[in-house]
Design a binder for these strands. Structure first.
Length: 351
DNA sequence: AACCACTTCAACCGCCTCCTG
DNA sequence: TCAGGAGGCGGTTGAAGTGGT
């Protein structure tokens, strides 16, 4: 359907807001509250589009906005949530009190994204950039991709619970629509939002079990399972990609050492953590050749391209550590060295 | 001091979803 | 059920700021 402009653009001011305009908007909202942005500018005596007023209020004038630098914890949270939610800036912002989606989006694009790229990490997938790796080795290894699944590190459970709750609420209605169909196939204890069906294919997008598609996940967004489930399954974005394009049948799970519970939940045996040396070798490789990334441990076929890792004590200091502004980019890079964020390893099978 | 390149971020644009009549 | 409006969201832009020469 056609969509009329949100406002008559003729005679409406654009561009930076003046202090007078800000004051008018603040005064009006303090007296009458916000809402009905279409009529608000007229009532407030502003020659502005309602959308412009809303944006100005939500991104700048709102009294609860936290201005200033992002703390280390905030940045860590952004990265972890982004690895799960993708560019859902509003969802990410909802978990960072005082921060707006616009601010987080800008910060991601101007700081975090660049840093990840410098580190050879794809900011979209949170995986090592494949264009920097030996593709042939990767292809050869792809058939063994699932063998090391039991060694995946896992997303910080707390963060994952947050993300799960976000996505759960966001997709609640959609899930209500589709879940009853899937429920016939799945165990009743399977949370609704792991039973999504690919709306396009009309078949499970990620069938994990060949005969009984208990868990199917949408292709249009990162894998997301219940937080409690995730503590024992630990998908990464990389595995998501693989699973999305290669149906994972039950044999794969059995071969990989993943046991299936009655709840159709894969059980993983252990979590992996990484030493700071491992991270350092990744972030500061001896040469620009990505293939020189060394596999740090003795777990053969250990494929842990985790974008977000468990950070139970992620904060390097008891108090928030400011990493934006006063610190240089290099210093900020190094600050990751002392945390276990952004740690992943290249499996031996890729060499 | 002037110029240029680069970075930052507020603001805009257009699309999408939800709500209402 | 559907059309249309309102609000929300993510991508993009461009002015202002900053640093280097």
């Amino acid at each position: 359907m056609g969509r009329a402009p949100c406002c008559d653009k003729n005679g409406l001011k654009k561009g930076p807001w003046t202090t007078e305009e800000d004051q008018k908007l603040v005064d009006y909202i303090q007296k009458h509250g916000y809402g009905n942005w279409r009529t608000l500018p007229k009532n407030a005596g502003l020659q502005r589009c309602g959308k412009s007023c809303r944006l100005r209020w939500t991104n700048y004038l709102r009294p609860d906005i936290k201005r200033g630098r992002f703390s280390f914890e905030e940045e860590e949270t952004i990265i972890q949530l982004h690895s799960i939610l993708g560019n859902k800036w509003s969802a990410i912002a909802s978990r960072l009190p005082g921060r707006t989606d616009n601010e987080i989006k800008n910060y991601w694009n101007t700081h975090i994204r660049k840093r990840l790229l410098r580190m050879g990490i794809d900011p979209v997938t949170h995986s090592p950039r494949l264009d920097l790796l030996d593709i042939s080795s990767i292809l050869n290894a792809s058939s063994q991709m699932f063998l090391g699944m039991q060694h995946y590190p896992f997303v910080n459970p707390d963060l994952f619970k947050l993300a799960s709750s976000i996505m759960s609420s966001e997709h609640h209605k959609d899930l209500q629509k589709s879940s009853h169909q899937q429920n016939q196939l799945c165990h009743p204890q399977i949370p609704e939002f792991v039973q999504l069906q690919d709306p396009v294919q009309q078949e499970p997008a990620c069938t994990m079990f060949n005969s009984t598609p208990c868990v199917s996940l949408p292709l249009t967004q990162p894998n997301l399972v219940n937080a409690d489930t995730y503590q024992s399954s630990s998908f990464t974005d990389f595995t998501y990609q693989q699973h999305s394009h290669h149906e994972l049948v039950s044999d794969d799970w059995h071969k990989s050492g993943v046991s299936l519970t009655d709840d159709c939940v894969p059980q993983l045996s252990s979590y992996n953590y990484f030493t700071s040396d491992d991270v350092h070798s990744l972030m500061y490789p001896p040469s620009s050749e990505p293939s020189t990334f060394h596999s740090n441990n003795n777990c053969n076929q250990n494929f842990s391209l985790a974008s977000v890792l468990s950070t139970p004590s992620s904060s390097p200091t008891p108090n928030s550590t400011i990493i934006n502004g006063s610190n240089t980019e290099d210093e900020r890079d190094q600050s990751y060295d002392s945390s276990n964020m952004l740690k992943f390893e290249i499996p031996n099978i890729l060499f």
